[in-house]
Nucleic acid binder design. Sequence first.
DNA 1: CTCACGCTCTTTTTT
DNA 2: AGAGCGTGAG
Length: 765
Amino acid sequence: MDLLKNLNDNQKEAVLHTDGPLLILAGAGSGKTRVITHRIAHLIANGVKPYHIFAVTFTNKAAEEMRNRVMSIVGPQGSSVFVKTFHSAAVYILRRFGEDIGLTRNFTIYDGGDQEDVIKRILISMRLDPKKVKPSMISSKISEIKDKEAYLEGVDVNSLLPDNYSFNFSEIFSQYQQKMAENNALDFNDLLCKTVDLVRKSPSALAEMQRMWRYFMIDEYQDTNYSQYLIAKYLSSATKNICVVGDDDQSIYSWRGADIRNILNFEKDYDTTKVITLEENYRSTKQILDAAHSIIKHNETRKEKDIKAFRGDGEPLTWCKTNNEYGEGEFVVNTIVSLKSKENFKNHDFAVFYRTNAQSRIFEDFLRRERLPYRIIGGQKFYERKEIKDILAYLKFLVNPADSIALFRIINTPARGIGKASQDRISEIAKEQNISEWKVIQDELMTGRVPKGLDDFRKIIDKLLKETVQIPSRIKLSAFMKNLVDVTGYRESLREENTMESNSRIDNIDELINSIFDYEQSEPDATPEQFIQDIALYTSEQNPEENPDEKTDCITLMTVHNAKGLEFPVVFLTGMEEGTIPHKFSLDTEQGIEEERRLCYVGITRAMDRIYLTNAELRRSYAGPENKMPSRFIDEMPWEFINRVSYVSQGYGGGESSFRSSYSNNENRQYVANRTGNPVQSQSQSQFQSKPKESYLDELFAEKKIESDESGSKFSVKESIMHPKFGTGRIVSIEGTGDNIKLTISFGVTRRVFMEKYTPLQKLN
DNA sequence: CTCACGCTCTTTTTT
DNA sequence: AGAGCGTGAG
């Protein structure tokens, strides 16, 4: 049988074991996804209908990849396999059966930001200062409670609530729950909890789901929380055909309620469980695996496993100590440049990992400077931008006019003269008469001084509400949204502002409309409700128009958390410092340290051929510069596994001279000359304290950019200039000499190349 | 009511 | 280093 051809014995066994509970303990790089997809294909080949198969993973990216890989094996019928994330599966279930537990079909999903808006309003109504009692802290507490086993098992909520606060947490919690119900909204936790509620309270819904789905596959099982555990258990209880896949060493979400006991106790839960262990690693070289193992074996609470390297020895791990985060950025980018030229690596072969999103900026700056294309996974998300949230709030509100958070977001955006005072009065009237805020506006129930803009707002919304019901049958969603941006005056107000920022906001809105257009192509029958729900859960990609098929050859930047499940030929695991990895908030407990260690393990085991660990001895944060010790995890590796290197950037922190923000793209901060008045050299110097083993490293930093002095240019890198046509700009790089000097100049986000000889540039300093 | 300026606080990781 | 927020003037 063709399906089994490229599988090892254990993998084959996992694919062939189709009925009854199956636990696959799959170490990093052991071909886990391959087993899952082949198992699905095998089921289908043996007569199981694709729509009887239910498979969930953790991220949209992983789900998408799984679906594509299944389809590449079994063809178009693979599209009827139910492959989703837990949260999107819950949305599907609740949309279909939620009425059984009193939900309406058009409920709204609140993300973390919306949640905090709700909490903030509650705090203010309780006369608490949102600056002292932080909404983010309350929301994470609420979330923590909803993750708890006790909460789902019906233990009195009051006994779960923290009572050692100076304020009344229990009151906040109950108001929050009430407000969510009023707004017809569910938060991320509710999606799972309500699904549990549904399968428990509605036997008919459960029975129908059990008829619909007969084979279950749960990926990343070590990261499931209690509600996810229950959902899997209830749904699969009729057939017991449940296959879970996981690796206790890669459990990195305990802070979000993931309970490692789910995987450790699986055998107890299902007494006929078959256990298969996949220990052959096909991804990484032996050197990489040995280094990773030497770290993870320091964890006390884990199952020891013997991961075998299928590939050969390879290159040793490189640890580079750098003086500060600029040195770190330079080292990473220089290494990429060098590896590309010497070993034919492509951009998409490289990934840069970091612990916190804030660390990405420096790498971005250096990559931009070298004009290397990159993409960021996660981070500042497209859908979290103000203008996108504003526009989507309009749509959210139109779909669910009970959503008061959305209403108050849009009522005075753009400014219509409906200020805080008016908004408060609307709320009051709504409360008195026990009706929704929108009803107050719609029926013109406001007494006393009514702001003129309110009438405009009412008319705009009334008209849009009538149109909304005609989507998608008579009006296309993309056309509707395009019109919405105009008739609400949103576009016009940005256009009037006419700043760099407002123009880029307009671009983002256009991009949103483009992405809606794309969405329409794949989901022509989608209602606005569906669209809203899809994007509420779809947050993994920063940029909606970026194709997932990676046609563009980019370097990837992301947090280690986001890297789980992925692999790259060359990986940089940066910020290997005490306080960063392990993070300073995790240092208090042994469990915290162990999770950080697993994080480190996940990072290293993403690498196929090369892995670089870097640390900065001085790192700047908002609190000022901090001295950092190398991470304890580096010490946990034997010396012979490590190729030690160090790199010093000339930027700040070198002792002499002032701090130079050489690579900031902030146009206001230009350090064109140092104290002696000489042009700043853009090229930093490197020093190796020990000799690198790899020859390419010897030459790595010998490459010199042509400096202005050498080229004979009148200008120097980073100097500000005035161009007669393009206005003020900044020299990014200088190439060539004499009559052949080419200047690359950035004007805001756009860049242009000029021949110095022919271009009348004016110096600006 | 709006706008502009300046002050403060921020940062763990994500569905 | 930057976003969000409050304050005070118009």
